[in-house]
């Protein structure tokens, strides 16, 4: 029943969040009667998140979709903005400033409702000291979080019904990849898994990590390799004295060596914007023969690899449309391959 409701809701959303806009408008364009929009959606990105040609850019795309003609009955009723800075200090400063100033910055009139979109679950920690500044009509939407964790966060931050979760499961794609792997290399039972943080297991709890473990025979089959050991440091704290992108390139190189020594033939990569470093290694190089699966990275024609993409932009847009219309939003909403939000290029006929 729940799934049916989602599908119905998504159908509405697909119609309303078309990627073929007639005339895009600038988000901050004021209404003719200049008093300012009564609502605002603000997406919070961490340093280095945007520019990934995947997940984060998709979220931003969803944000802009909200302002496209026809998405909302009255586009001027909603302001959208985002915060993305070069450092955590600047990000925190901007977040604090946003929390403090709950008025429309261009017209001075207080917003009636605001929604902050937390794009990575670990960012909730930033609210440890700031959540008290959330206004009574401010709400929080956390992406990539499962229902249990949203429930815990609701209690921790005393947010009650003002916190929500939105996720897209990649379980079906992960399962397909494991089966492809077992068909190609029946004797290979371990899978290196490259990701940004050691703590962000929460991101995978619902889908990827569990599926990989189950399909490949237990958690020991997954070699987790985090880029950073401390999410609060973010990906600046790399284990190499290089940028995240360069580290990804070096890891791909190490992976090639592992393949040459017949250690591993497959790898899963979820490095956000640093995925490009991995892609760069794969670029037009047929001799690099191990098989990569990149998470939330759009396909690049020059790099030969598998991908799973989750259309968070579409999901976010649909969610916000209903929120802007004043609907009571659920604690948790989840999509997946079943309703077309998760796609991949993994062969299924093995």
């Amino acid at each position: 029943m729940r799934k049916t409701l989602y599908i119905a809701a998504m159908l509405l959303m697909v119609l309303s969040c078309s990627k073929q806009p007639a005339q895009p408008q600038q988000p901050e364009q004021p209404a003719a009667e200049a008093t300012g929009a009564p609502m605002q959606v603000m997406a919070l990105f961490g340093p280095g998140q945007l520019g990934d040609n995947g997940y984060a850019d998709s979220v931003m795309s969803g944000l802009y979709s909200l302002k496209r003609e026809g998405t909302l009955p009255d586009a001027d009723s909603l302001d959208v903005r985002f915060i993305s800075a070069d450092t955590y200090t600047e990000t925190n400063n901007q977040l604090a400033s946003w929390l403090k100033n709950s008025s429309n910055p261009f017209y001075g009139k207080p917003y009636k409702r605001r929604l902050v979109v937390i794009t990575e679950p670990y960012m909730l920690e930033w609210f440890d000291e700031l959540y008290a500044q959330l206004g009574d009509t401010d709400e929080v939407l956390v992406l990539k979080m499962n229902e249990d964790d949203v429930r815990i966060a609701a209690e921790d931050y005393v947010l009650g019904e003002r916190i929500h979760g939105l996720n897209i499961s990649a379980a079906a794609s992960a399962r397909a990849f494991c089966r492809y792997m077992k068909a190609e290399k029946p004797d290979e039972h371990t899978l290196p898994f490259f990701r940004l943080y050691s703590e962000d297991i929460v991101t995978y709890r619902d889908s990827l990590y569990e599926v990989f473990s189950r399909e490949l025979g237990g958690e020991d089959a997954i070699y987790l390799t985090p880029l950073s050991t401390d999410a609060s440091e973010g990906i600046f704290s790399t284990t190499f004295e290089t940028t995240a992108l360069e580290s990804a390139f070096q890891w791909a190189n190490m992976m090639q060596n592992a393949f040459n020594y017949a250690l591993n033939s497959f790898a899963v990569v979820d490095l956000g914007a640093a995925n490009a470093g991995w892609d760069y290694f794969l670029l037009d190089a047929p001799e690099k023969t191990f098989t990569s699966l990149l998470m939330d990275a759009r396909q690049m024609s020059l790099a030969s690899r598998f991908f799973i993409t989750r259309d968070f932009g579409k999901a976010l847009c649909g969610w916000c449309v209903r929120w802007a219309r004043g609907e009571q939003m659920p604690l948790m909403e989840e999509h997946g391959a079943w309703d077309g939000y998760c796609t991949d290029n993994i062969p299924r006929n093995q």
């Binding site: 990934d52 600046f236 940028t243 992108l245 360069e246 892609d279």
Partner: peptide, 14 residues
């Protein structure tokens, strides 16, 4: 394909 800068950053190769 990718992004680069002289100093490099978290998303850019130096």
């Amino acid at each position: 394909v990718c992004y680069l800068s002289a100093a490099g950053s978290n998303t850019e190769a130096s």
